[in-house]
């Protein structure tokens, strides 16, 4: 292909000047159109599903948030009433928002833990493959089951954690983890970290294993000590994986519905209420779909902003595998 045809704009200008075959741009345009149509055909099914199941509900949700509406009543324009209630009257919203942000801020802790585990099982440690599998096993478990197990572990009287803490003399009185305002949220977060850490680990492990061994060898010869090899090679090379984990952590904080629902139901007194459980309660508990829609819009906006920021922090390539 000549240089002219590679650039349709340029070729159109230069047709006369260089006496390029007059048919070239036309042929090229037709081919471009055909290609575009073919691409569209391939994309259409998934686009249609995306539109039907993601975009339309979202749009409808946005509309709904500016209305008074219940399944049985005609919609009435509400202006910003739902939002005004949320921001100025709904203490639970603020509590849920705070809790959600705390949940998000816990994810770096989980990612660091997962990194430590990934580094350990990535070594020549004997049986590393087995540990890897065991650690990952928590992830595919149903959150409901995880929640129930942790409820028992946290129990004030018969729970294993209190049993161990008292047995080792760390505490004298049992801690009512899920029944106390101070402990409930950290307890739920810990269970969540436990569940998601295996997934983080797999992502980080994949990242670690895609770092060429020669880089470490080169660094050893170059005289970089182990700490520098970690900071100057491992961490930068893991950046896409780490930020993928961060994005997943943000998403997870917005969707940790099952765990909270099972472990505390958002209580005591909204101490573990997340935006997502509040939305559920408003929508399906109190049949206030309109208000729940407004909450959803706020959660969605927050999610988009945070994900955008996280992705920008990594230069727009979260999850990609960088190679030399």
């Amino acid at each position: 292909m000549s240089l002219e045809t590679r650039n349709p704009v340029g070729s159109a200008k230069r047709v006369g000047a260089v006496a390029a075959p007059a048919s070239a741009p036309g042929w090229y345009q037709r081919r471009r159109t055909r290609e575009a149509m073919l691409i569209a055909c391939f994309l259409l099914p998934s686009l249609a599903i995306f539109l039907l199941y993601r975009i339309l509900p979202l749009a409808w949700n946005a509309v709904l948030s500016f209305e008074f509406w219940s399944p049985l009543k005609a919609a009435r324009f509400a202006g910003l009433d739902n939002y005004a209630e949320m921001f100025f009257e709904d203490d639970v919203f603020w509590q849920a928002l705070t809790n959600t942000l705390i949940f998000i801020m816990a994810s770096p802790v989980a990612i660091l833990l997962a990194l430590a585990v990934a580094l350990a099982v990535n070594s020549d440690l004997k049986g590393a493959a087995i540990y890897r599998t065991i650690i990952f096993l928590s992830y595919p478990l149903m959150s409901v089951a995880v929640g129930i197990v942790w409820r028992w572990l946290y129990d004030e009287r018969g729970g294993f954690i209190n049993f161990v803490l008292r047995g080792t003399g760390l505490i004298t009185d049992p801690i009512p983890f899920l029944q106390s305002f101070g402990w409930a949220l950290p307890s739920v977060i810990l269970a969540d970290i436990w569940q998601v850490i295996g997934f983080y680990m797999i992502i980080l492990l994949t990242g670690l294993q895609s770092i060429p061994q020669h880089l470490y060898e080169a660094a050893r010869i170059d005289g970089a000590p182990a700490s520098a090899r970690f900071l100057r090679i491992t961490l930068p090379m893991l950046r896409p994986s780490l930020f993928l984990c961060a994005v997943i952590g943000i998403l997870n904080s917005f969707t940790a519905f099952d765990l909270v629902y099972v472990m505390t139901g958002g209580g005591p007194a909204h101490a573990t209420e997340l935006l997502v459980t509040h939305i559920y309660n408003m929508g399906f508990g109190e049949t206030r779909f309109d208000y729940a829609a407004a909450l959803t819009v706020v959660q969605f906006a927050l999610l988009v902003i945070l994900t955008f920021l996280a992705n920008r922090a990594v230069g727009g390539n979260a999850g990609s595998v960088e190679s030399a």
């Binding site: 080169a218 010869i221 970089a224 030399a324």
Partner: peptide
Amino acid sequence: KDRDIAMVFQDYALYP
């Protein structure tokens, strides 16, 4: 690092 050698690798091993 203390052998005072330098090595060029097959895949160059440049820090990306």
